[in-house]
Design a protein around this nucleic acid. Sequence first.
RNA 1: GGGAGCUUAGCUCAGCCGGUUCAGAGCGGUUGCCUUACAAGCAAUAGGUCGGGGGUUCGAAUCCCUCAGCUCCCACCA
Length: 898
Amino acid sequence: MAELAKTYDPLPVEARWYAAWEEAGCFRSVPDDRPAYAIVIPPPNVTGVLHMGHMLNNTIQDVLVRRKRLEGFNAVWVPGTDHASIATEAKVVQKLRGEGITKQTLIDQHGYEGGRDKFLEQARAWKDQYGGIILQQLRKLGASCDWARTAYTMDGQDPQNAHHTGYYKDVVDTFVKLYNEGYIYRAERMVNWDPVAKTTLSDEEVIYKEVQGTLYYVRYQFVDPDLRLAVRDPEGNLLEERTYLTVATTRPETILGDTAIAVHPDDARYQALLGQRVRVPFLAREIPVVADSAIDPEFGTGCLKVTPAHAKADYEIYERLKAAGTHIEVVNTIAEDGTLQHVPEPWLGLDRFAMRKQFAQWLADNNCLEKAEAYTHNVGHSERTDAVVEERPSLQWWVRMKELCQPALEAVESGAVQLFPDRFLGTYRHWMTNVKDWCISRQLWWGHRIPAWYDTSGGLVQVSVTGGEGLAQDPDVLDTWFSSWLWPLSVFNGLQAPDGPDIRYYYPTATLVTGPDILFFWVARMIVAGYYHRGEKPFDRVYLTGLVRDKQGRKMSKSLGNSPDPDALIERYSADGVRMGLLLSSAAGNDLLFDEALCEQGRNFANKLWNAFRLIHTLGESATPGPATPQQALATDWMAARTHEAAHEVARQFDDFRLSEALGTLYKLIWDDFCSWYLELIKPQGGSGFTEGAHALVVGRFEELLQLLSPFMPFITEEIWQLLAPRAKGEFLVQTRLPSTPAPDAATLAGMGTVREAVTALRALRTERNIPLKEALDVYLVTDQPARWQRFFPLVERFVGLGTLHLGVAGKPEQTVLVQVGTDELHVPVAVDVAAERTRLEAEIAYQEGFLKSVQAKLTNEKFVAGAKPEVVARERQKEADAEAKLSALRASLAALG
RNA sequence: GGGAGCUUAGCUCAGCCGGUUCAGAGCGGUUGCCUUACAAGCAAUAGGUCGGGGGUUCGAAUCCCUCAGCUCCCACCA
């Protein structure tokens, strides 16, 4: 073998092993008689690139899946992508715009269906060009997906004929089924409208942001010339009589759509106006003053202008009035593209924001504006385009959610589906009990086209996968989530073959790993779909990761430019290093403050491992035949016990999803126990030889550690494992099984515990007094467990350069320093600064006395002795005895100083 | 407005049903060390009245109340 580099060079290693694993089919899974463990990836946007959130998310999934493989499960991780209707379409539209092409020009050239086909061709080309980048990035990260199962939420859509298959068929079949069972209906309702994408949005796709706006106080003149509104001060004195009322609004651009003014029915100020009429500024339109109890008398003037076509709240007032027999008009003045419609010149065709400015100016110029004040409020924005969302009535397709959600709510309440951390249960319950009907139609082209068919006059004729002669298909596509909610079912072909081998074997899947931001968008709906289609949950547990934030706690985002480029990160720190950096501080559900220093720690750890390997490897090359020394055997026994102890701990931590802690456990096991203690004990000293027996022991220990660590750092562990001993071709660490872990040997652990305590104390003594290592220290030992010391003393000796071990203090020189290890006493002959030593002993005595006093205070407290658990009392008694023993030794030493 | 969470060492955090190991870990700091695997390292070491106040208890970082600060989610009063 070539000379091993002093510093680990990860990049070629990572590329090489990933290719080897993939080629050997290490991640391939097909049903067999082992227990299944399935994870489906939250499908990223097909044309997206990896960001920090993905990195965290997918690292967690990979760690879980790799661990289960080691445990002997038949683990599958299903990868795939989402067609991301609105996001992808927006990119294609943008690209075409760069070429001077719009959807309309395509329609003009090719007719509606032809133009649409042209557009979809472009979209498919876009998808082919950029699709799959993210899957390559996942490979770089080490994601052990079963790539043969790669799924896509628009698989099986065949533009040439209507015989759809795969995912596409699942989606339209689901639509038809829900429609036939009455869960899907078409109705005109208020929707969230994105005027940029020109489509509806679900409530979840609307992001409210605080915006600095203006609150305009606008005058509406009474129609009745004799009508007066009395304005009084708080004492009730008449201040003024007006011929108008004033309405506060942030949206003067909608005034031309006003069809009523509403006040609270109990508002004393406006009682006389109820039933009267006012005139809309600029227009001749007369509108009534009506009462509605949703009005807040405290806000503004207590009068609300009712624009049913432009606000949900207003539309609800309209509906309540209608139910009560009062009809007001619905005038929709804002068109789909956000410009003014159904209004007179000069306003017609103005953009809504220009309209706001210009109409406010007109109001001011015409004595209709009382005042305008700065006002901060929340305004809905489109999640995808960031456009200010318009609320408008629109004819759309809806899913009746209430009943469908019931089993999904119960599943989580009962713990059939567990959320980690469980504090999200409250939010989940709140959403599921207040769920509204889901608007699923989108005025887009890229996506699953709605399987509804109309006659030439636009009447709905049928809902079915294929249409009849002369019928036109609904132009809209389905909300992306209407396909992704089928993900865990569809990737195992569970809808078209409900009794197929895959769905029966892998479903319900084991764990879903995703961010809490899509708990409702996606997680809840998958549970709904799972129960609807199969009467069965889609997964047992949901691991909710935190958001990745930067060091200052800001969310990572493109616009802030604070999100590191994953490829660059991996190049700098290696995939293993980045994975470790991400996992080091990511408790479930807690946000992760990402700091590159953590990746550096990961890289350093990889290097540490590499150098441990270098040592072992070099020792092996020069090893001579023969058995290990008794000390090496003892150290190995201890390392084995320590590994078993840690392995049990790691298993528990995995069960609780405490991945961060599991990694921490292994980090310490390897860095401290293995490198700092075990390897130091094993390696030959002062030119003495190293045997093949010893080498075999170390290799055995190291292999077990590599295996335990491999889910976290798959690449370097594989590399070292392969180099550590001869392996057959096609043999991989990935494919090994964890051995069953015996209970750790307590006596060995305790013995080594004493060794470490003694070594640390003696090292401190050396450092304090500047005693060079070459100067051997004799030790006079007072102990009640001489056998343990006899056995382990050589190990202590190995670290701190000891001379002779004398049992007891017979023949001890005048001047010694007392080192306490538990209740054992080590008297070490060194030159003593009497004054300093006295001070040290007195301080130690004072501390022990204080400690003893507090213990005795408890023990003489009858309520404690009576009330505390017996083992607690026993512990306190032990503490008392130990402290007394220590004190007497300390006092004796003090006395000996003279 | 409704709900959830957080506040422990300079930084990031762990401390589950109150009681050995309860005041911890990693990073960072300081001080020695190029000690034959590793300076991306080794050894030693300093740092906190567990956000403030009150209560329950023999005993509170841990349970309860309260105040303060921060974060997130939901609702969206024009």
